[in-house]
Amino acid sequence: MRATPLAVVSLLLAVAAPVAYILLIRVPIVRNHPGAYVAAFAVALALAVLALVRGRGRRWPAWIALGVSALLLAGGTWFNLVVARVPMTPTVLRVGERPPDFTLPDAEGRPVSLAQFRGKPVVLVFYRGYW
């Protein structure tokens, strides 16, 4: 088994995983499984280690693959578990209860209250902004 092809596969996997995640962010099954790119970094790291331990021939591509995949695994794990984590909050929302009414301006600045939508099922979405 030659080291270089393994190292190339490791590098391709490590780079392709986050690129694919970002490109397919609008596909719910992709977006909702961010752990998949972390797993891909771990596989890429394992391939780089395999290339170093078992591979023949040039070693420097395997060292590069090892460095890249190790950095991405550490960064990806940190991002997924620390940066992207949303803390539990003491919400007043309870299934089976009516949440407090509110009035907010719409896009044209007209006041709109939640209560005025009674009579229709409502999907109420709180989101951060553009994403």
Binding site: L93, R94, V95, G96, E97, R98, P99, L114, A115, F117, R118, G119, K120, P121, V122, V123, L124, V125, F126
Partner: peptide, 10 residues
């Protein structure tokens, strides 16, 4: 994301 029925109940 919250789904409310016609009476405004979660």
């Amino acid at each position: 994301t919250v789904v409310l029925d016609r009476e405004g109940i979660v």
